[in-house]
Design a protein around this nucleic acid. Structure first.
Length: 351
DNA sequence: TCTGGGGTCCTGCGGCGT
DNA sequence: TCTGACGCCGCAGGACCC
């Protein structure tokens, strides 16, 4: 049986800010953009008591908690602290799957006394970076993840699969990662309002509603069954840039300027990474929040600024937005293999 | 009272070649 | 020569995650 840990920094962006501003400790602190359409990226636990959570509009956060200190995000600094954190972890654990800046799965296979090792690691991270973490330990990633969330901040929860199923049986299905608000609502309307109810749901019912793959998968999640491995290396399958405007844009020429700027930024980054893609896509969000995507695949992979920009503008012209636009985005996917081996034997084509 | 940015994966569908 | 089954690819949209 594997032993997996999930390590999750508590209110990470706020914690990094508090390292620079210790005078703010204990006060409600909110990290969010400053524009009229900004959302909250992280709120301190003091701010959360006022109902301020990630992803709510910053304007609402100000009404809910006017006394909070609002800070602009500084992603360069968050990346720096994040790198320091994972360096400490990687010095102790070989198999680390980093998910974003502030959390990771650790495969503790071969590590003696994994709980003691994780307690020591958390302390080492705190000493080296000043960041406090919550830890979940279990036989798979799913148990570890839910366990690490259960007693935040500074939580430390180790559970077997059976213990997790029992402990969370009465909770709503959306507690389980992968079950979002839409799926939870559908489940609830079917009579499965708790994880326990979903775990006991008849297969036919779930297959009928969610299909032959998603249905059984949902029930396995509710039973905390998970065999996904800790993956130490991720290769991105697409890269994108998008921007939401402070006020909606109706002028086509302005939209094209924006698309070309996004394409230039994206392509410069792709060129640095020596990546080229064949699929070019745009994303358009109208003022009523309807969102469409349009994509085209070209014969040869590219990261050429003009080529990607031209295609983005052509896709926009073909769509011809019927209303003012609040967001535009450009995406490149279908990446060519970075360095194709020269002497790879030809694979026989299957008949 | 409106809803960021950067991603991944899945589903369903139509076109196409075998 | 026609037809159906099948698999693959590209595309659009949706759900979800950090």
């Amino acid at each position: 049986m594997p032993t997996i840990a999930h390590l999750d920094a508590d209110a990470f962006y706020v914690s990094v800010e508090l390292l620079r501003r210790p005078d703010l400790a204990g006060r409600p602190v909110v990290v969010s953009g400053s524009g009229p359409r900004a959302v909250v990226t992280t709120a301190s636990y003091e701010a959360r008591r006022f109902g301020v959570h990630s992803a709510i509009p910053a304007s609402r956060a100000r009404r809910l908690c006017p006394q909070a200190v609002f800070l602009q995000p500084d992603f360069d600094e968050y990346r720096r602290v994040s790198r320091a954190m994972w360096a400490v972890v990687r010095a102790r654990v070989a198999a680390v799957e980093v998910m974003g800046l502030d959390e990771a799965y650790l495969d503790l296979d071969g590590i003696e006394r994994p709980r003691a090792a994780m307690r020591a690691l958390v302390e080492e991270i705190r000493a080296a970076t000043g960041i406090t973490c919550s830890v979940g330990i279990g036989p798979n990633k799913l148990v570890a993840k839910v366990a690490s969330d259960a007693e935040k901040p500074a939580g430390f929860v180790a559970l077997s699969r059976e213990q997790a199923a029992a402990r969370f049986a009465g909770e709503r299905p959306s507690l389980v990662p992968g079950i979002g608000p839409k799926t939870a609502e559908r489940l609830e309307s079917m009579g499965f309002a708790t994880i326990g109810a979903l775990a006991d749901a008849p297969d036919e019912i779930l297959v009928g509603e969610f299909g032959p793959r998603l249905g059984p998968w949902l029930r396995r999640r509710a039973r905390f069954e998970d065999h996904s491995p800790v993956v130490t290396e991720h290769i991105a399958v697409s890269e994108s840039r998008e921007t939401t405007f402070p006020t909606d844009v109706g002028d086509r020429g302005e939209m094209e300027d924006i698309l070309r700027r996004l394409a230039a930024d994206l392509c410069q980054d792709l060129a640095r990474k020596r990546r080229q893609g064949r699929t070019i896509a745009i994303k358009v969000r109208l003022d009523d929040f309807t969102t469409i995507t349009r994509a085209r695949t070209i014969p040869a992979a590219t990261n050429d600024i003009a080529e990607v920009g031209d295609m983005a503008c052509r896709l926009l012209a073909e769509y011809d937005p019927p209303r003012p636009v609040r967001l535009l985005g450009v995406r490149v996917a279908g990446f060519a293999e970075p360095e194709p081996p020269v002497e790879e034997p030809q694979l026989a084509l299957p008949l």
